[in-house]
Amino acid sequence: MERVIHSAADLQYATDLVMAEEDLVRAHAALHAGAPVVVDVEMVAAGITRRETVCRLRDAVAGPGLTRSAHAIRLAYEQVGPGALWVIGNAPTALEELLTLDAEPALVIGLPVGFVGAVESKAALRESGLPAVSNVSEKGGSAVASAALNALLYHPVSHSEETS
């Protein structure tokens, strides 16, 4: 929460973010064990430090009933398979597409921004039961999504995680 608040200079994230501690603990372990990190846009990737990411937006094309962002998520899933950490800070349609896949994510950081579809896509994420970080408002974006991932990336690995 601190990194998200700091990245946005917005204290309202203290009451807007939704996450479960046990999801974060498992995601932290997966991340530090080498699970892939998939992002929806290059701006999210640019904010994630010290870790390679997968972003397939440049390879994606829009088609009937499928946005370019949604297609990029499909392409990324074909590349990484289950168990990845998914960081979505821009496109609600990317988050919606992820929810249609059998991605078995280690964590979904679903913080797309905007007035069209963002709130609904984040509500669908929370209703899905997948391990997630989201928020209830229209707020979000690349900076806060990457900050949430960086919080896990920079949090020290505990001895119990190293031995499990």
Rank of each mutant, 00 (worst) to 15 (best):
M1A: 15
E2L: 07
R3H: 10
H6T: 13
A9N: 14
L11I: 12
Q12G: 09
A14M: 07
V18D: 02
D23A: 13
V25F: 11
R26C: 13
R26I: 11
H28T: 12
A30V: 05
A30F: 00
L31K: 01
A33M: 03
G34F: 04
V38S: 09
E42S: 09
M43N: 06
A45Q: 09
I48M: 11
R50T: 02
T53W: 01
T53H: 04
V54H: 02
C55T: 14
C55V: 10
L57W: 08
L57H: 07
R58M: 06
V61F: 11
V61Q: 15
P64C: 05
P64S: 12
G65Y: 01
G65S: 02
A70P: 09
A70V: 09
A72I: 01
A76C: 14
Y77D: 02
Y77I: 01
V80D: 04
G81A: 11
G83L: 03
A84S: 06
L85F: 00
W86N: 03
W86D: 02
V87M: 03
V87E: 00
N90M: 05
P92V: 00
E96C: 04
L98W: 05
L99A: 08
L101Q: 13
D102G: 15
D102M: 05
E104S: 10
A106F: 02
V108D: 03
I109F: 07
G114F: 00
A118M: 01
E120P: 05
E120A: 15
A123V: 11
L130C: 14
E138P: 08
K139E: 09
G140T: 09
G141P: 04
A145D: 03
S146M: 03
L149I: 08
N150D: 15
L152P: 09
L153F: 01
Y154I: 06
Y154P: 01
P156N: 14
S158L: 11
H159V: 11
E161F: 03
E162I: 12
E162M: 15
T163F: 08
